[in-house]
Design a protein around this nucleic acid. Structure first.
Length: 362
DNA sequence: TCTGGGGTCCTAGGACCC
DNA sequence: TCTGGGGTCCTAGGACCC
């Protein structure tokens, strides 16, 4: 029952632990909170909430909906087919942002480092002799303050902590450390590792590396040769439970911002395409100017009806905050595309100058 | 199942300069 | 003058994640 952190603050000479906090079915849970009558019902959040409209996908499904095989990334129409009785709701970003902020504030109430990883996730770093008590205290505090349930993974690296969370879901606490890593993960396929997706798994397979244990035993130079000087060693370290133990409360600073739209019907008219590009460019510029940031590069993304995606990017002669300048450059980039195919998606991304250092008062 | 939107980091290759 | 090597900047694309 002793909880050195909750009871007496941080323990400077205690071991460093990495905790991973992951909110359960976050979007759906927030929606149920604001509409208590939905409790216990299958809830699907995605797109504009219209399950009949094409080209929209599920953002989050409640556990009641997951039972029917509904999961994130699935087209909304498929979800509707699998679970016709589900309640379909539109994505409401400001509400999730506010709920997320409340959760993160709760975490920061502990004497720990808090590194936010999106709306529904954070890493927590702490020196403590009782990480399990800390994890349970965090879970309880989040539940008390926000009525939201989370799972907490405890580890000695970000990777082990994140992996432990998978075993803790929903709403529990689990621990995994590097000494136990191979016992628990060794027999699993390489893409069970956070950071290794289907493409890298396929390339590893070509090297006759199929399991986590095989990856752990793989030759580093061979991996560096196959994947490059940074990616190779990084993949090798993942096979052993990862090496990243750093958790930092330093606020995240965006390097870029983007706005993109998949259109319900393909665009074919050049002027219409240009007008949409202009709109996206002006929007994203307003977004970043509101955050007092300055645009240095402009990228245009275009996806055809056949799902062929290409990007063109260019650096501005000088940084700008002028939506018209960004829009003009984005439209210029459009000329680099043949525009001989129907367009399904357009996106404008801006890259940003590092924020100004706060002025020295002296 | 016809496939969203918003991010990050890494690699590779060409241009250009010394 | 027919040929090298290194460094930096820039763009395109790949891969991953939530």
């Amino acid at each position: 029952m002793t909880d050195p952190i909750a009871a007496g603050g941080p323990a400077p000479d205690a071991p460093w632990w990495v905790l991973h906090v992951d909110l359960d079915q976050f979007l759906a849970a927030v929606e149920v909170l604001r509409r208590p009558e939905l409790a216990g019902r299958p809830v699907v959040v995605g797109g504009d909430g219209d399950p009949l409209r094409a080209r929209q996908v599920v953002s989050t499904a409640s556990y009641e909906a997951r039972v029917f095989g509904v999961h994130s990334g699935m087209p909304l129409r498929s979800a509707a087919r699998k679970c016709p009785d589900a309640v379909f709701l539109p994505v409401d970003r400001p509400v999730y942002e506010a709920a997320s902020e409340e959760v993160m504030r709760t975490l920061r109430g502990f004497p720990v480092e808090v590194e936010v990883w999106g709306w529904d996730e954070a890493f927590v770093g702490a020196r403590t002799r009782d990480p399990d008590a800390l994890a349970r205290a965090i879970r309880q505090a989040v539940l008390d303050r926000t009525q939201l349930s989370c799972a907490v993974g405890i580890g000695d690296t970000k990777l082990t902590a994140k992996t432990a969370t998978g075993f803790a879901k929903p709403g529990g606490v689990a621990t995994l450390t590097r000494p136990e890593w191979l016992t628990v993960m060794g027999a699993k396929p390489t893409d069970a590792i956070w950071g290794i997706g289907s493409r890298i798994a396929a390339r590893l397979h070509a090297l006759e590396i199929d399991t986590v244990a095989e990856l752990a035993g793989a030759d580093w130079d061979r991996l560096a040769g196959a994947f490059g000087p940074r990616t190779g060693p990084w993949i090798a370290s993942l096979g052993r439970g990862g090496a990243d133990t750093e958790v930092s409360s330093t606020p995240w600073v965006a390097k870029g911002r983007s706005r993109e739209t998949t259109y319900p019907a393909d665009l074919v008219d050049r002027d219409e395409i240009a007008a949409e590009v202009r709109t996206l460019a002006e929007q994203v510029t307003r977004d970043v100017v509101a955050e007092q940031r300055i645009v240095t590069r402009v990228a245009l993304k275009l996806r055809t009806a056949a799902f062929f995606t290409r990007t063109r990017i260019s650096k501005l002669p000088e940084p700008t905050v002028d939506p018209a300048v960004v829009a003009a450059r984005a439209v210029e980039l459009l000329e680099k595309f043949p525009l001989d195919r129907p367009v399904r998606l357009l996106g404008v991304r801006v890259e940003l100058a590092p924020p100004e250092e706060p002025a020295d008062p002296d």
